[in-house]
Every structure is written in structure tokens, then in C-alpha cells.
Write a protein that binds this DNA or RNA. Structure first.
Lengths: 216, 216
DNA sequence: TTGAATGAGTGGTCAGACCACTTTCAAATT
DNA sequence: AATTTGAAAGTGGTCTGACCACTCATTCAA
């Protein structure tokens, strides 16, 4: 009953089946997948078809392949997908803008959620963030944002943000300057005080600074 | 000088070369690429290798292939990327709550964005929505939300929402009752008046009603 | 004990063969 | 002459089998 869909392309089916296989076999990040030849037999497909699926996943950065060794499940956070997609997509301003905007949707919500959650507000994270931003050491924007997203506790939102950040790369690549640090500090203080509006406003101000510095 | 990198994988090279080819030949969205056999000859690779590259780009949603016709450059704003990544990412023991919450993140933003955008506010959509909700006919919650997301104009956000909705199914499966209709109407009016706060509050109230009715 | 050779296993690539599908266009039919 | 039909060419979809290059573990010899 499973082979009842000849309409869809085989290699897409394989992609799905690989996903099931990974879950069923409980293959974790860094662990090895069955060899291409074994997969071909187990999934009832030719090796070329298996390879098309694997190569696709490799370009997405979901798997890593080492000649002579095998295929390994990789951490989706570090895909080189960015290069390829960037090259294809950078030309279209609108879609890139969608990505940035969608990132900010998640960021803003994380800030608001952190402000509203008493337990989250009392995390030691905020003090260490304050210390880092107040110091002379360089502070990477994406680190700040990521910490807040982690603290906010929505893992799905965090993952989506991860992907988009890797995809877009630009906005948070560098370090925060003095003006930004000031906005960040204000944001953190507002979060700790449970001042949702203040936190959101500070975040928006910071985002504007970043956007402006990006010089678009 | 072109074959000077045996270290990198051929199919990745092909991906790059395809990009160059598309630019050099000025192939635009919707237009046809050379056939696989022609590409194999022109790029000096086997057809399987070409296919691995093409399949990767297809999974990314950058190209579209139609059997018997050919390969076409597609609208990459389609963001098929999200589907695949989502399938892999959602495999974890995700709390359904994260999914619902993430949906609301996007919904809330769409409402806010619609309120802030003068052009969007003047869309005839709002009047027809008002008419629908005011009538006696059943109104499906997800239809209302979807319309707003579409109007807000962030296709990526919309796509993500689609996925989550298809995945979670529950919250917006049914029709809105009287109380909800009242909240929806208020939300629409606030959007049309550019009253972002009012719109957000009405949305939150509606979401609470839905959540309550779900009886969790 | 150490080191080198071997062989099995794996991904990387290629060539050729079918199949299924679409389009085209010329021949056959009306 | 206009229409229908159907064969052929072109295309993507898939499979098979064959090499190659590389890694690793085992084996065997020094």
C-alpha cells in the first residue's frame, strides 16, 4: 500500500523515506546512515535515485558525505546551503526582505515573551548578557538574539530562526557598536523589569540600527 | 583552469556552473533550461551528475521539472525549502504547544502589519471579510487568518504558517461562534482604522476564545 | 612490536539502456 | 481544404553495471 504513488517523483519519496528511516532507527547528529547500496536495496530503488535524494539533502546541509567512509547525519545549523541559495536569491530583493522580516517576527516575539515570563526574566542569562554588552569585548549580534530566543523557550521558533539566519546571514554577521549596545542594554533591562512595551521598543530601535548599518 | 578543483565534489561544481549558465544565457523565471543530455555534454559531465545537481536545485525549489517537457527556472519565492527542512525539523518530540504558539507569532504579526500598512488597510478584502463574518453563514477560522496573512504580504511567513497549520490542524479546524465573530469584527475594524493596538488586542482575545473552546 | 600490503566497503562518476510523457508535424481521413 | 490521427523526436525518470579513489581494518611479513 506504500508504493501506491507513482505520480510523485521517486526521489522525493526517497527523501521522505530517509526521514522516516532516520527517525525509526534513531540516528542522531553525527551518526552514520546506511550505505547507498544498502539504502537502494532497502528502499527498493536504484542507487542513482538514492543518490539524487542524498545529494539534495547534502546541498541542504542535512547530511554530510565522506568518500570512503559513508554518509552522516549532520547538524542543520552549519549548512553551506547559504552560498548556493544566496547566489540564486540575492537578486530578488523582495524574497530576501521576507526572510529578514520573518526573522524579526520571531525575534520580537521572543523578546516579548521573555518580558512576560517571570521565570525567564530571572534567568542568570540576563546578567551575563548585560556584563558582556557592557564590557569592551566585541559582542556578536546574533549571539545576543540567539540567547534570547533560547531563553524564550519555543524550540520550534528557535529552529526556524536558525535556518533563516543561516540563509540570510547578513543582518547579524558583525559586532554591535556603541549605539547598538545601548539599545540592547535598554532592552535587557526592560525584559528584566517585565516591561514588554519597553523591551519591544528597544528591540525595534536596535533592529533599525542594524538595518541602517547594513546600508540598504 | 576550470577543472582545477578535484577536491570539491563535482555535483557542487555543476550547481555553480548552472548558476553561471543561467546568468550568462539570461534565463529568466519560467524559462527553459537546456536538457539534461545537452548540459551533460556542455559541462563535460555524466548525465547522472547533472541530475544530482538538478535534483538538488529542485528540492530547493529553484527549478521545476516537467517530464516530457524539460527543466524550467522557477519562482524561488516558492520556498519549497521550508517544506523539506520542516519535515526534518519537526521530527523531534516537539511540543504541540510550540507549534500553536509559533503559528500565533505569525498571525499576530500579520495583523499588526496589516494595521500599519495603509495600502493593505484599504484592500477590499476587509469589507468582504466583514460581510462574511456578519452574515449567518459559517465562517471557518483558518480562512479568516489565511486571508489576513496573504494580505500582509510576507510570503515566507505565510508559507511557514501553512505548514504549521497543516501539521497542527486542531486550532482552526472549525467555524467561529458568535463570541469569536464579535472579536474578529473588532479586529478587522481596528485594522482598517490603523489601530495596531486594538487589532492586536482583539486578535489575542479571539485566540484565547479558540484556545478555550479547544478545551485543553 | 612494528610496519607494509591487502582487501572489503564506501562514495564519485560515467555510459547505456529502457520507460513514460509531451510536443510536433506530416500523413491519412473526412 | 480542414480535420483527425499517429508516428517520431525530444525530454525527464529510473535502473543496471561498471570503474575509480578513498578509508579503514585486517593480515602478514620484517
Amino acid at each position: 500500500m506504500e508504493e501506491a504513488k507513482p505520480s510523485r517523483k521517486m526521489f522525493l519519496e526517497i527523501v521522505q523515506e530517509l526521514r522516516s528511516l532516520i527517525r525509526n532507527e534513531n540516528i542522531r547528529t553525527g551518526e552514520k546512515l546506511p550505505s547507498e547500496r544498502v539504502l537502494a536495496e532497502r528502499l527498493g530503488a536504484g542507487r542513482s535515485t538514492i543518490r539524487e535524494a542524498l545529494r539534495s539533502l547534502e546541498l541542504l546541509g542535512l547530511i554530510e558525505t565522506r568518500r570512503g567512509e559513508g554518509t552522516f547525519l549532520s547538524d542543520y545549523r552549519q549548512h553551506q546551503l547559504v552560498d548556493v541559495l544566496a547566489a540564486f536569491i540575492m537578486q530578488e530583493p523582495k524574497s530576501m526582505e521576507d526572510v529578514r522580516q520573518t526573522m524579526q517576527i520571531h525575534e520580537k516575539d521572543a523578546v516579548a515573551r521573555a518580558s512576560a515570563d517571570c521565570e525567564v526574566r530571572q534567568l542568570p542569562l540576563w546578567d551575563s548578557l548585560t556584563a558582556a554588552v557592557s564590557s569592551d569585548l566585541p559582542v556578536r549580534r546574533e549571539d545576543v538574539i540567539r540567547e534570547i530566543l533560547v531563553a524564550a523557550g519555543n524550540r520550534l521558533s528557535l529552529k526556524i530562526w536558525y535556518l533563516l539566519n543561516a540563509y540570510a546571514k547578513t543582518p547579524y554577521a558583525g559586532n554591535a557598536d556603541a549605539k547598538e549596545r545601548s539599545a540592547i542594554l535598554e532592552m535587557i533591562r526592560a525584559i528584566q523589569n517585565g516591561d514588554g512595551n519597553g523591551a519591544r521598543e528597544a528591540y525595534v530601535r536596535w533592529a533599525a540600527l542594524v538595518s541602517e548599518q547594513r546600508g540598504n
